[in-house]
Design a protein around this nucleic acid. Structure first.
Lengths: 141, 141
DNA sequence: CTAGGATCTCGAGTGCACTCGAAGTCAAGG
DNA sequence: CCTTGACTTCGAGTGCACTCGAGATCCTAG
């Protein structure tokens, strides 16, 4: 394989990619089956998957999207846009902005929930310290 | 029913409780079946559930716990503690503090994800504005 | 008295995102 | 050559949290 040594890129088997992304090989194949890769995954002559550094970067983004609650179907939509190539950046950015808004809401909601939990904890602390009434169940007033 | 008018409390049917909590009647019955109520739900002579204001407060807390990702099994544990009555406030507070820590982590993770999404959005904005290179797929460097 | 809607129990079905297993092929070390 | 482990496809199974439906009963208004 006469690839220029300066442009040659490290490649990964599916197991190595799993190591580098923290996903399982099962999950990587399943993601591929769901159309979550922006390009066909190349194969060796005998059918084994070969990944490059780009796949690692892509999966890092994918992990961020997943852990922030983007559904697989939306990621598939985004992957399709990337796969389609230049010219649809407007759609891509719209998708990401919608997700950023969802993220804002999630964060606000979690912060509000945390306030309630903290209030509940201090109520309990008061009871434990001997000052403070018996605590009614449920959300603090 | 000779209840003192000053202590008499408004009661709710399951449908009214559903309206007041945003949960469905199905969900309320299912929660009860999973042991998520800190006291047995009283019934009318003919078997219909009767809830008080305490149930509304309890479900408000429960909603906060759920929307912040506490699993049903943990809420059941907490409900059992409350049901057992005074004396286990230490365990209750431990459970809530564990959840507060989980909440801290979730919030941090979401904020980190949001940063990545925002970076991706500004990369796209640069491309759309005509300055900026073609964008490689995946997480921005 | 009757019709409509709300409630009851119980069990089955749904949606999401993996997760696993079986049966077979392939690659690398000894 | 042989074994061991990584890889292949495909379909089925899992866990969580609801969600729905059937069939029966009950309450209220007309």
């Amino acid at each position: 394989m006469a690839i220029d040594a300066t442009t040659a890129e490290r490649t990964y088997s599916i197991g190595e990619l799993a190591d580098r992304t923290g996903m399982t090989v099962h999950t990587l194949r399943w993601y591929e089956s769901q159309g979550l890769f922006p390009a066909d995954v190349p194969r060796t002559a005998t059918g084994r998957r070969v990944y490059g550094e780009d796949a690692v970067r892509w999966l890092r983004l994918l992990a961020r999207l997943r852990e922030s609650g983007m559904p697989i179907s939306d990621i598939a939509t985004y992957s399709d846009l990337v796969r389609a190539g230049r010219g649809n950046e407007g759609e891509r950015v719209a998708l990401m902005e919608a997700h950023a808004r969802s993220l804002d809401e999630q964060i606000e909601q979690l912060i509000a929930a945390r306030e309630v939990i903290r209030a509940k904890i201090s109520d309990y602390r008061r009871v434990l310290a001997g000052r403070g009434i018996e605590l009614p169940p449920g959300e603090p007033a």
